[in-house]
Design a protein around this nucleic acid. Structure first.
Length: 359
DNA sequence: AATTTCCCCAACCGCGAAGTT
DNA sequence: TAACTTCGCGGTTGGGGAAAT
């Protein structure tokens, strides 16, 4: 249908926002709210298009935005939600109080995605990346149906490839034979989603919809974000229990993967997840951000925003990082959550290949 | 110290959905 | 119901700071 012409108008300022512009926008919204973004900039005395104002507000100036690094729990939640929802950043953001879709998207693309790739996990399918060895084309070839096959001979690299990796490929082959009706890379993900959706929905439905178990959609991608039946917005936004609930999803993560694959692939702990091996580490990291968030929310609900924190941030400058969620190792050096990721999942490929070449 | 390369993230763009006339 | 407007989402870009050379 029609396109918004607002950004096409000449004479409107683009690019980074100045503190003065921020102040004008904040003042205006404080007084009048933001009913109509199109007329807002004119009324607020801003030489910006409404779209730019909306973006600035929702992604930066909104008082309930939580700044700083993502906590471990937030990161874990993002990964779990992404495996369910895919790139539905707004839906993911709706379940992470104080985080914007843009922020989550950026964080995913710059941190989590790379980390998963380094761990040999496809960030799209959340499955092991067999494409590292271009196995998919090999596995779909005519030898697919052979009951016995010598992958190392097939690859012609048996002197180079780690035996573990060959076992992985072999295991994958057998799992393919067992699930001949599935296209692993694509359908497996849907399968993951279905499994996950059942469990996620169960978790939220049990208290509210005990009897409505059997009517789950088959395609998770089609489940709107709001379909998880929180009874009201406050409940939806009450995320305190969400990450802990998600710990149950570790089960489907491992269940969804062909069991023989996971077993041969690596020895996964019972409660396998992306961070499986080092929970004790992150549990020791105190993240006060949650309480901070709830303060924000309560402020929010009382409509008594504190703009001080907003104004203290530089205009359009890189976000001021508070240290709430920063991980500090013993030497006091800031440490990427990377370092407490599962070493198990870095498995053997890392020793064989320079995975970065594939990124 | 100067230059280059890398990386992050705020902001933009284009599109589709929803709402309005 | 068509035409138009507004909003919101997801993908992408480019400026600027940090790190490497």
């Amino acid at each position: 249908m029609g396109r918004s012409p607002c950004c096409d108008k000449n004479g409107l300022k683009k690019g980074p926002w100045t503190p003065e512009e921020d102040q004008k926008l904040i003042d205006y919204i404080q007084k009048h709210g933001y009913g109509n973004w199109r007329t807002l900039p004119k009324n607020a005395g801003l030489q910006r298009c409404g779209k730019s104002c909306r973006l600035r507000w929702t992604n930066y100036l909104r008082p309930d935005i939580k700044r700083g690094r993502f906590s471990f729990e937030e990161e874990e939640t993002i990964i779990q939600l992404h495996s369910i929802l895919g790139n539905k950043w707004s839906a993911i953001a709706a379940r992470l109080p104080g985080r914007t879709d843009n922020e989550i998207k950026n964080y995913w693309n710059t941190h989590i995605r790379k980390r998963l790739l380094r761990m040999g996990i496809d960030p799209v399918t959340h499955s092991p990346r067999l494409d590292l060895l271009d196995l998919s084309s090999i596995l779909s070839s005519s030898i697919y149906n052979q009951s016995q096959m010598n992958i190392s001979r097939l690859l012609g690299v048996n002197s180079l490839v780690n035996p573990e990796l060959l076992r992985l490929a072999t295991s994958f082959m057998s799992s393919q034979r067992e699930n001949q009706n599935h296209e692993f890379i694509v359908d497996h993900n849907v399968e993951d989603n279905q499994l996950c959706s059942s469990q996620v929905q169960d978790q939220y439905q049990q208290p509210l919809m005990q009897s409505n178990h059997n009517h789950l959609p088959t395609q998770v991608q089609e489940i709107p974000a709001c379909s998880i039946p929180f009874s009201n917005e406050a409940e939806l936004m009450n995320m305190d229990q969400f990450p802990s609930n998600f710990s149950h999803l570790n089960d489907w993560q491992s269940n969804a993967m062909p069991s023989n694959l996971t077993e041969d692939y690596v020895t996964l702990p019972p409660n396998y997840d992306y961070y499986a091996t080092d929970h004790h580490h992150h549990q020791t990291v105190k993240d006060p951000s949650s309480s901070e968030t709830s303060n924000f929310q309560s402020n929010n609900s009382n409509q008594s925003f504190s703009f001080a924190s907003v104004l203290s941030t530089p205009s359009s400058s890189p976000t001021q990082l508070n240290s709430n969620s920063t991980y500090v190792n013993n030497s006091g050096i800031e440490e990427e959550p990377d370092s407490y990721c599962s070493n198990i999942l870095k498995f053997e490929i890392r020793d064989i290949l320079d995975v970065n070449d594939f990124m």
